[in-house]
Structures are given as structure tokens and as C-alpha cells.
């Protein structure tokens, strides 16, 4: 879909990571949870956030980023670490899905 890679550079200049970090922090605060530092190897299920928190994060990110990478695919495996989570949003961003690394 994007053989030159130029668009990939452009889209990656507006990274999703800060939006995701902000939403993790906001939801943790709203739900009274203690958030561990958001390192890439943080295992999501071992963070203090529960399933409701993750559900809210995904819903809010759909509003701010304009897409839900889980889409309607029922078989999409949920990311295990925070790094996986960010990568999941980065690689499934509309327009960059087919760009090789």
C-alpha cells in the first residue's frame, strides 16, 4: 500500500505513544489506581489496572486517535505488555498497517 515508506515517516512523526500514556495516566487517576512506570516490559495484567480500566482506555483512544485497532475482529489477541499495546496501536494505525518496519 505504501511502497516508498515516506508516508510511514510522516505518520510516525505523530506518534500514538504520548496519547496512550496520557490515557493510561488519566484513567488510573480517575479509577483511584496506582500506576507503575509505563515501561515497555510492564505486563498489563500485573499492573494495578483492571479490565474496566483497559476498556475505558481503548474506548477513549478510539475517540482521540480515531480508530480502534481491535476493530470487530473477535480473534485479536490482546497485547500482554505495555510495549505490545503501543505497538498494536502503531502497527494497526490506518495507513501504516502494511508498511514494513
Amino acid at each position: 500500500m505504501n511502497p516508498t515508506g515516506e508516508a510511514a515517516v510522516l505518520t510516525r512523526a505523530t506518534p500514538v505513544r504520548p496519547a496512550i500514556e496520557a490515557q493510561f495516566e488519566r484513567v488510573a487517576k480517575e479509577q483511584g489506581k496506582t500506576l507503575q512506570p509505563l515501561s515497555d516490559d510492564l505486563v498489563l495484567a500485573d499492573s494495578d489496572l483492571d479490565s474496566l480500566c483497559f476498556a475505558i482506555i481503548v474506548a477513549r483512544l478510539e475517540d482521540t486517535l480515531g480508530y480502534d485497532p481491535f476493530g470487530l475482529a473477535e480473534d485479536a489477541a490482546f497485547p500482554v505488555t505495555f510495549g505490545d499495546f503501543v505497538a498494536f496501536y502503531e502497527t494497526r494505525r490506518p495507513g501504516v498497517a502494511d508498511v514494513p518496519d
Binding site: V43, L44, A45, D46, S51, F78, V80
Partner: peptide, 9 residues
Amino acid sequence: WRCALMSPS
């Protein structure tokens, strides 16, 4: 279960 399967545990 969806949440549990997110965990390596």
C-alpha cells in the same frame, strides 16, 4: 477471561 488471557500467568 479476556482479561485473564492477557496475563502470562
